[in-house]
Write a protein that binds this DNA or RNA. Structure first.
Lengths: 195, 195
DNA sequence: CTTTGATCTGAACGCGCGTTCAGATAAACG
DNA sequence: CGTTTATCTGAACGCGCGTTCAGATCAAAG
């Protein structure tokens, strides 16, 4: 039997989060026992509590980390002044970012109802900030006369729903490359809102 | 204390399904105990088993009923030969049908991973049949030259994702009427695929 | 080599889970 | 009115849950 105790591994923490994310995405938060996460990592259930105070915090941290990474990645890109260019950038960024993190996206959207009230408020605020980004682009485009959109807020949510829908069918290594998918969706997005 | 035993109520069955649907939508299948469903109905947990063989069947029947109702309602409407008219009809029908059944829609989309393999296959086939309906409309429109769509299958999924997204924000009695929402989305759908 | 401290095990805790069933109840029937 | 039958209660079943913790283990520090 391999050495399993006392080793200052230092990598158990990340492995716990990875296993939890994968299992939560696959089976749902409520359906995954802590013992299953532990088994995936190769430790006993008690050891998980060196890395999270409880199961709820584990879920919350995963969702928070995902959304903060999303916002940070978005802010790392320069925003073109031209609204059409900005919308194209948003579209391609959204598809690329989300297609590469299917588990995190799934968990962040499906497990909202398993968050305690305080945690939910934090996550909701982060998501809202991202939606507002797109809405601002649409507003600008309407002012510039390049977009014809009666309800920018609703259009923003409609476009995000469409773009996130990529994750329901896209698989890396399939018939279409990510670049091709970006082109197809950008074509639809542009025509849906262009003046 | 009110009479609680022996009464041939005859309405307990539907009430069980209604309570289960609402609770599954609110908290998720795995997070809802049979005892909570029973409490909502006003009976003890054991009584539920007069109406379902087990919890899994309860979920499966709810999802199956929802999708069969969806397909039946769709087939009850005449399909215009003109592809543009057919797409408009599909768009408005989809929004109307789904906006009126938020709990059933939520459960049918979110609890797929809690279905046993055989049940999942049945549900998946039903959903696929609905998607194929929209794809057929797009195919026809491309042949007629009224749509410019490179990938009808993908466009169909993109549009359905966008339309179902209405349920994430729409509330009856809000600022916009259902008819107005239909107009806004139909405008985007039309422009997204029109030649 | 000894000590320290982080890490993990293994057992235990109280609790709630889905499900079963014998017995109680009351509506329906002849 | 007596009997039948569908319905529901209340208790019980074995099991797995999230979480805790004393003690074992081993890398690193002195």
């Amino acid at each position: 039997m391999a050495r399993t105790q006392g080793s200052h591994a230092g990598i158990t923490g990340p492995r716990v989060r990875e296993a939890a994310l994968r299992l939560f995405a696959r089976h749902g938060y409520a359906a995954v026992p802590m013992r299953q996460i532990a088994a995936e990592v190769g430790v006993q259930a008690g050891a998980l509590y060196n890395y999270t105070p409880d199961k709820q915090s584990l879920l919350f941290e995963l969702m928070k980390e995902h959304l903060e990474t999303l916002l940070a990645a978005r802010r790392a890109e320069p925003v073109p002044a031209d609204a059409l260019a900005a919308l194209e950038q948003f579209t391609r960024f959204h598809i690329r970012f989300h297609a590469r993190r299917p588990d995190a996206v799934f968990v962040a959207y499906m497990e909202l109802r398993n968050l305690e009230a305080d945690n939910f408020a934090v996550i909701e605020r982060l998501r809202r900030a991202y939606e507002d980004d797109l809405e601002a682009i649409l507003d600008t485009g309407v002012q510039q006369g390049v977009f014809a959109v009666a309800e920018p807020k609703i259009a923003a949510m409609a476009l995000i729903a469409m773009l996130t829908g990529v994750n329901t069918w896209f698989r890396e290594g399939g018939r279409l490359s990510l670049a091709q998918v970006e082109d197809i969706y950008w074509d639809m997005v542009r025509r849906a809102v262009a003046a």
